[in-house]
Nucleic acid binder design. Structure first.
Lengths: 336, 336
DNA sequence: GCAGCATTTGCACACGCTTGCAAAAAGCGT
DNA sequence: ACGCTTTTTGCAAGCGTGTGCAAATGCTGC
């Protein structure tokens, strides 16, 4: 294998004329070192290009500084935005992100968590998929923190961060009603994740409260193409909907494009559309989509600060946080 | 601190009734263990939920299995797509990605590389920014491999993966000329990275070869908003361009939206547009943008296979790979 | 100068793993 | 049964670091 040769604390100690422990202490905030030797060490380290070996440090301290991010569909706008916030927040508190892509087969979330354990990650943050309960238990038993984002699992132990999907979906109905819409539809994928289903259920429930029915169409994976296909199905029905709530902005973009370019419908005059996530493209003037903003920064902050807190408090019970999704009014619904 | 308690090889050995070394060997492919004890160990490990400590393993083997990805603007479509491919490819060869976000201040690329060294990453892949030469030297001296993607640096040592930007830009001119365009423009940002500048230079050079002038406009950061603003500047000129090559798809999207919605221009009838990157949105029917496809999968494969090769071959000279950007013909240019 | 105290320093062990080496066990041909 | 070779096994050293403990050093006030 490659002949790797990083400089060690030993060499620094030798050059600075001190003991190896002095070097260690010089790099440990709050350790007992005189300013004089600290400077000698730091200079020697600088000259040699010494960097503390975090593998060894993690081994000793029993704290690696690694946080594992488990995520599929990394290249999706919402996911990548969340990724950006998480990595940034983590770095601020001195941790580093290990990214595990679970796009391949399923059950790979479990293997991802195993990977996290192998590297003795201080915590794992799961953005997609759901781990097997046994693996979750193993993580907690090993003292690894766990954060579930937007996966409404009821296992105790992990921190669960969710949005008020159900309630938010209700607010869409009133918006549609105020715009004078009567034939409501919901566009979803077949993924069936809890958050998607909560939006669907909330929408239907609120519609019923207004005495309105809603046509539901689900197709494939939650992306642009699926949105186009759902549009085909919805807009060719005998009673064409005049308002559709899409479970996701990507679905909404696909649906809007199909509505305009294939069915020559004008938005919002003939069709009102609302999405969810507030991805960057939602604000592009071709879409100008009214949508719910995922508070990605707040989500990331919640997750990271929880990691910093003392774990003793609610180790057994776990913690659940519900954040508010604010409706970003744009031009895809009449009468904002 | 948290009382972490992972199960160790010692406990597994005890339960399986073998020595520590047997456990170690059971988890080392190709090590000398009898099938019988191997099974005993594996079962005990399974029951206890044992996972090899990769920090300790990395310390011994002098090979962490970590590859550091250094990247800014993670949430950008092109970057996130590259990220997806890289993580996937890395996982296939049994490595794991450590993601360092350099969005904050500059010079942070250097700090990111220091982080990579601290964790004894086997390699670092730089997707954005450029490291200081001294840090690069330190990495190489320490035996850490380095890959630069689309940053045309001439330092020896690292693997440099680039596209044929200059030549590709030339092909745009012929496409525009064939479409009957005569008033060419180039839309760029002020980022000034080598790949962006190569596209600009290639475009101008090829235009000159055809006896055509080109108006260049640069503004801000390479994104959608910049595209809109560049459009304002370009389309209000006395001699309005009839064809514009955008250094990036995001710029192109912004420019197209402005052209259509603010200037009521029809694309491609009154204005031809070509972009670069082939982000997902380029194929959305609202844009249907003719653009150059970044061969993200090929780039990732190149990087990862190079990491697997023996380092002895060209340690000093480094290696440079130029990949081909294929033009994806769509509807934003007349007469594909 | 010296006792008394606070601060700094070095030694040595521990963390969990891999691996060379020699001893033990197993296979094999006669 | 024996000697021989091949495989398997345990011991112990080592990877680079943090840290408790005791020794050493530096101060302060007489």
């Amino acid at each position: 294998m490659s002949q790797r040769d990083f400089v060690s604390a030993e060499e620094v100690a030798q050059r600075a004329g001190v003991s190896r422990s002095a070097v260690s202490r010089a790099f440990t905030p709050g350790a007992s070192v005189s300013e004089a030797t600290r400077q000698k060490v730091l200079q020697a380290a600088e000259e040699l290009g010494y960097q503390v070996n975090h593998l060894a440090r993690g081994l000793m301290r029993n704290e690696s500084g690694i946080v594992c991010l488990i995520v599929s569909e990394v290249a999706t706008p919402y996911r990548s935005a969340l990724l950006r916030e998480l990595t940034q927040q983590l770095q601020i508190v001195g941790k580093v992100a290990m990214l595990v892509n679970t796009d391949r087969s399923d059950g790979s979330v479990d293997r991802a968590l195993q990977q996290a354990i192998r590297y003795r990650a201080d915590a794992s943050i799961i953005l997609s998929g759901l781990p097997d309960k046994s693996i979750t238990q193993l993580c907690l038993r090993s003292g690894q923190r766990l954060v579930l984002i937007n996966r409404d699992d009821d296992q105790p132990g992990p921190l669960r961060i969710n949005l008020d999907d159900h309630e938010a979906a209700g607010r869409v109905v009133t918006a549609f009603v105020r715009a004078g819409c009567t034939k409501l539809a919901f566009a979803n994928s077949e993924a069936g994740t809890p958050s998607l289903m909560a939006r669907e259920a909330g929408f239907i429930a609120a519609a019923k409260a207004h005495g309105l029915d809603v046509v539901v169409e689900r197709y494939g994976w939650t992306g642009y193409e699926a949105g186009k296909l759902v549009a085909q199905r919805l807009l060719t029905q005998s009673e064409r909907p005049d308002a559709v709530f899409c479970a996701t902005d990507l679905l909404a973009c696909g649906l809007m494009d199909a509505a305009r370019h294939q069915f020559s419908l004008s938005i919002p005059d003939q069709l009102c559309v609302v999405g969810f996530d507030d991805i960057e493209q939602a604000s592009w003037s071709s879409y100008d989509l009214t949508t719910f903003a995922q508070p990605v920064a707040a989500i990331a902050r919640q997750a990271v600060t929880w990691l910093g807190e003392s774990p003793s408090s609610d180790r057994l019970e776990g913690h659940s946080v519900t954040l508010h999704a604010e409706l970003a009014w744009r031009g895809s619904v009449r009468g904002g």
